[in-house]
Design a protein around this nucleic acid. Structure first.
Length: 554
RNA sequence: UGGCCUAUAGUAUAAUGGUAGUACAACAGAUUUUGGUUCUGUCUGUCUUGGUUCGAAUCCAGGUAGGCCAACCA
């Protein structure tokens, strides 16, 4: 029996179109402007567009909407390509709106010839003041009724570079009283004597988004042009142009952009965070950019899973960051190699373990895999580093880690009993003293003892050293994007904590970039780009779910 | 004195005129050499008022609430 999986509204439309033989194959496109790095919101759009053609047959183009040379750069083009590939998608064609500048120019001439566009000498302020408001109609420009010949002559001269920036525009001749503001003679072309990242200095007039996007879709025979809700009013203009130009009718469908708690997905604001050094570049692990998440240790699988789970709809939304964390834990749990690392060390001395003795114990690499993913050796000795938080001088209720008189298992090694501890003048614990139970060794335990707690450890003489970076949310309010002042005032000052000297087990010294680890009981980690052979630097992707942290707050 | 879009548990999303379901979160328990994982169970929902209908989350009308539209940005 085939399980009926519910479809989103766009999938339903496509299925219907296919059933009615409206199209034989589906063509979509992902159309970023190369003026910033991709973020989690784009991931949602990428998964949707590429996922649709994967599911229904066809292909998805990667098209850069590069119609504004002032803000666009090749660096962004490269990062976008890398991110889409990393997410696991292959585009049908790599295209640029700037590839169509010649065609678009011809379209503009066509409109002028048919009396549907005119050259306006008004300044941007004048255009704005004649535009009206959402509740009041606009007024016609004094240049609206120029002859076709005059329009043709001026537009040709605009292209030839005769006029300075801002002195003339080409406008569509539609209706200045139209209830849709976008239909009130929208600007089609503007003069910009600017260098374009691909066409260089060939052009000094550039089409507006509204005169490029829809036609680009049409030129590419895009069947389903999917975008976010704020473009709903543009659809009317998009359809008007397609009709007047008599070109392939791509259809636009809009969905609600995805918002995530405690994050910002505005390229402008992300750029601000980068420029004002609140973060370490676009790929800072605290950023929900694709590159930031990659550096942080997210997997493409987990991001795709997240996008799948949040779905596609048309209503306003604010998705809980907890779901993203669930998705990455879910995947990492299956694939991450278990390792031991002590982040905040305190020394544990086994008072009945012979001085100088060293033995090897075996520990499983991943209990989720068959045969526990194999085992690796760990050195065990008399002096060990353990986590400071795993000892409590005065145990809390339901505490089952170390405390005076308590017993606990050292993961993959022996059961130990706490016999005492040492403090310095300030009252800080400096040493924990335990006796070990020789017959309790993992794998050959004949002690018959039962312990509730198991803790991780690192042998003092065998410990490696690493830097560990712990991240918290970048903003301390759920929705930092709401316009009640400067979003920067919501930045969490404690979003990054660097541990300069953490102790790691020997095998971690050979960690390579991209490998995923679970530091047992501490979370998932991956190597940062600042790692060196001398000093590995680990990023914490996400903590483990911590039921005790919740319990202890009660 | 406008046009357009939207409204289902805390969050996100199904149910396409016929039993309001799923996931995350929360809570309780079982298992566990990670207070992880896994498993079991519990809690919580159709914005509102009418109408159509044998029957409405679904269709219609009014209301309410939220969002988008007045860049030579995309």
């Amino acid at each position: 029996m085939i399980e009926e999986k519910s479809q989103n509204f766009i999938e339903e439309i496509i299925e219907e179109d296919l059933k009615n033989h409206k199209y034989t194959q589906i063509i979509t496109r992902f159309p970023p402007e190369p003026n910033g790095y991709l973020h989690i919101g784009h991931a949602s759009s990428i998964c949707l567009n590429f996922g649709l053609t994967k599911k229904f047959g066809g292909y998805t183009n990667l098209r850069f909407d590069d119609t504004n040379p002032v803000t666009e750069e090749t660096e962004y083009v490269e990062s976008i390509k890398e991110d889409v590939k990393w997410l696991g998608f292959e585009w049908g064609n790599e295209l640029y709106a700037s590839d169509y500048f010649e065609t678009l120019y011809k379209y503009a001439i066509q409109l002028i010839q048919e009396g549907l566009a005119y050259v306006d000498d008004s300044s941007s302020e004048e255009i704005a003041s004649l535009k009206g408001t959402p509740t009041e109609p606009g007024k016609n420009s004094p240049f609206r009724d120029r002859s076709v010949e005059e329009n043709l002559e001026f537009f040709t001269k605009m292209k030839a570079g005769v006029f300075p920036d801002g002195t003339k525009t080409l406008r569509a001749k539609i209706d200045m009283a139209h209830p849709n503001m976008l239909m009130r003679d929208p600007v089609l072309y503007r003069i910009k004597h600017a260098h374009h990242h691909r066409t260089g200095d060939k052009w000094c007039i550039y089409p507006m988004y509204d005169f490029a996007h829809g036609q680009s879709d049409s030129i590419e025979n895009v069947t389903h042009s999917i975008c976010t809700l704020e473009f709903v009013p543009h659809r009317e203009l998009y359809d008007w142009l397609i009709e007047k130009l008599r070109i392939f009718p791509s259809k636009q469908y809009e969905f609600a952009r995805r918002n995530l708690t405690y994050t910002i997905t505005s390229k402008r604001k992300l750029l601000q965070l980068v420029n004002e050094k609140f973060v370490d570049g676009w790929d800072d692990p605290r950023m929900t950019t694709i590159s930031g998440m990659r550096r942080r240790g997210f997997t493409p699988e987990s991001i795709r899973d997240f996008c799948e789970r949040i779905g596609v709809a048309k209503r306003e939304n604010l998705v809980d960051m907890g779901l993203l964390e669930f998705c990455v834990r879910d995947h990492l749990n299956k694939i991450a190699q278990r390792r031991m690392a002590v982040l905040d060390p305190v020394k544990l001395i086994l008072i009945n373990y012979p001085e100088g003795q060293v033995e090897e114990v075996m520990s499983e690499n991943n209990p989720e895999e068959e045969n526990a993913g194999g085992v690796r050796p760990l050195f065990f000795s008399r002096e060990l580093w353990i986590e400071r938080e795993d000892f409590m001088e005065v145990p809390a209720k339901k505490w089952f880690r170390l405390a005076p008189g308590a017993i606990v298992r050292l993961k993959s090694a022996y059961i130990v009993k706490c016999e005492g501890f040492k403090k310095d003048d300030k009252g800080n614990i400096t040493e924990v003293h335990c006796s070990y139970i020789p017959e309790s060794k993992s794998g050959s335990d004949t002690s018959g003892m039962h312990v509730k707690g198991t803790i991780h450890w690192i042998s003092v003489p065998h410990a490696g050293i690493a830097e560990v970076r712990l991240y918290d949310r970048l903003f301390n309010v759920e929705n930092p994007a709401v316009d009640d002042g400067d979003f920067r005032t919501h930045i969490n000052p404690d979003s990054l904590r660097i541990i300069k000297k953490a102790y790691i087990e020997a095998s971690l010294k050979e960690a390579t970039a991209g490998e995923k680890f679970q530091f047992i009981r501490k979370g998932y980690f991956t190597l940062d780009k600042y790692s060196t052979p001398e000093l590995p630097v680990f990023n914490r992707t996400v903590t483990l779910k911590d039921t005790w942290a919740k319990e202890s707050k009660k």
